[in-house]
Write a protein that binds this DNA or RNA. Structure first.
Lengths: 123, 123
DNA sequence: CAAAAATTAGGAATAATTCCTGTTATTATT
DNA sequence: AATAATAACAGGAATTATTCCTAATTTTTG
């Protein structure tokens, strides 16, 4: 593993539960490695998510978000502030009969659309 | 409703279950209205999906997809060919206790990642 | 039918992401 | 350890996806 990938991973992990986008991870990684480039960040994030080492979460109206936590869980996104919240595991259960015939199921991703408490209150 | 919106809607509906992206809808709409512009297509699709008249489905590695069918159902996307398949309703059931406290739930969207029969066979 | 409001075409602008190239670092091989 | 082969990098250009802007046109309303 290269130093850059390690730094990117650490940045993602350091972001905790904020589910940062590539831009944010880039800024964090840059603090450690001022010469790191956006291309490197995207390439590594893409590689890692392709390998299942991290989660990549596409959301409406914004850039993809990332999560270091690959344990089985889903997310809710606030349509107002855009923050992503973790849901507990086991929200979804996919009965076999629901998977299109012959399809090999690789992964499931559920994204709830919600308005979070803070945003609800500030209206 | 403007003629453009009607044409866009018809194009989406004509695309059937193919879950076209904005580009494809644009091409279809253009056959009816050669002067229609991409901006108009995006604006109308965005408006309609904001109003809940159509579905907008963000997917990894590609542009958003649209669906005229707003009945409660979810989708599976093939990671190889990118096609989107409809799932029957009732795949997901979200227990209240899973929604982050205080959040107002607006919508749920589940996207299964799979490899479809055709792509599986052609390997 | 005229005034007001909304929507359009067309294209520029922005955002998100990938791709390219020459260089550097890492790994494998003698 | 030196060399060759492979992989990854920085930097920036290019591409893709989407939004935004403006003047012109269409639609709605009183």
């Amino acid at each position: 593993m290269t130093i850059q990938r390690k730094v990117i991973w650490n940045a993602l992990k350091a972001a905790g539960k904020t589910h940062p986008n590539a831009e944010t991870i880039y800024r964090l990684a840059k603090e450690e490695l001022p010469h790191i480039s956006m291309g490197t960040v995207y390439r590594n994030l893409s590689d890692m998510s392709a390998k299942g080492e991290i989660l990549r979460i596409p959301v409406m109206d914004g850039p993809d978000r990332f999560d270091w936590d690959i344990s089985r869980h889903d997310h809710a996104v606030c349509r107002v502030c855009g923050r992503l919240f973790d849901l507990p595991a086991g929200v979804t259960y996919i009965p076999d009969r629901c998977v299109p015939k012959g399809c090999r199921l690789l992964d499931t991703q559920l994204l709830l659309q919600c308005i979070c408490t803070e945003c609800e209150e500030s209206t």
